[in-house]
């Protein structure tokens, strides 16, 4: 079974040379730490920066340079700043190659819910609805089950949706799963995790074909 860093490490293998990547808040943010350093990748933050770098050294924080999580950041050579409409032109116009974000629920038809729990304070969707509606390549990073132990990979989402039929791949603490027209297809198992454990933790239809390999991290 993987921890959050393990999930991020596995997703980092999906990041290819030449990709522009948008990382959501939470586990997705950790992915940047594990991307191979022999490939060229630029990270986009929807508040208006491409070519995001690491956090600044203490004393070098600039209130005018932050990411979408409102954290102080730095930029790398080749970086650019732009306005919010242009930022979403990059996203809506499919110029961003890969979007990695967290989720509360994903359904076997690719629906995703990650912004609102009825009865609880709603903070808002931020850029999530624009991202999931437009990106061609969306990977969801999340734990396979919620804190109560219930599956987050469902037949149908129960929470208010963020987007419909948009998720292509899911990486959890237990498995790598592809969303297909037939349902959740099990691609890889996390180290030490059995197919049965994954079946037990998946409410939606899980397709298992032949021998399922263990993840290589």
């Amino acid at each position: 079974m993987l921890d959050k860093n393990g999930i991020a490490k596995r997703i980092a293998k999906e990041v290819k040379n030449g990709y522009y990547v948008n990382l959501g808040i939470g586990i997705p943010t950790l992915v940047a730490n594990f991307v191979r350093d022999d490939i060229e990748v630029e990270f986009q933050s929807e508040n208006g920066v491409l070519g995001m770098g690491p956090f600044p050294f203490e004393g070098e924080e600039d209130p005018d340079i932050i990411n979408a999580g409102k954290q102080t950041i730095t930029t790398l050579p080749g970086a650019s700043f732009f306005d919010s409409a242009m930022s979403f032109s990059m996203i809506r116009g499919k110029h961003v190659d890969l979007t990695i974000l967290g989720a509360m629920e994903v359904a076997e038809n690719g629906d995703i819910a990650n912004w609102k729990i009825p009865g609880k304070m709603v903070k808002g969707m931020g850029g999530a609805m624009d991202l999931v509606a437009s990106a061609e390549n969306i990977i969801v990073a999340m734990m396979h089950t919620n804190r109560a132990g219930a599956s987050k990979l469902l037949k149908r989402c129960t929470l208010p949706l963020t987007g419909v039929g948009c998720v292509k791949k899911i990486v959890t603490n237990l498995a790598v799963i592809e969303v297909t027209p037939e349902g959740f297809k099990l691609l890889e198992r996390a180290p030490g995790v059995s197919v049965e454990q994954i079946e037990d933790a998946t409410e939606g239809k899980l397709i298992v074909e032949g021998e399922v390999p263990e993840m290589v991290l």
Partner: peptide, 12 residues
Amino acid sequence: EKRIEQRTVRQR
């Protein structure tokens, strides 16, 4: 004032 909401830094 330019208040910083989330001050994040890395160690030298």
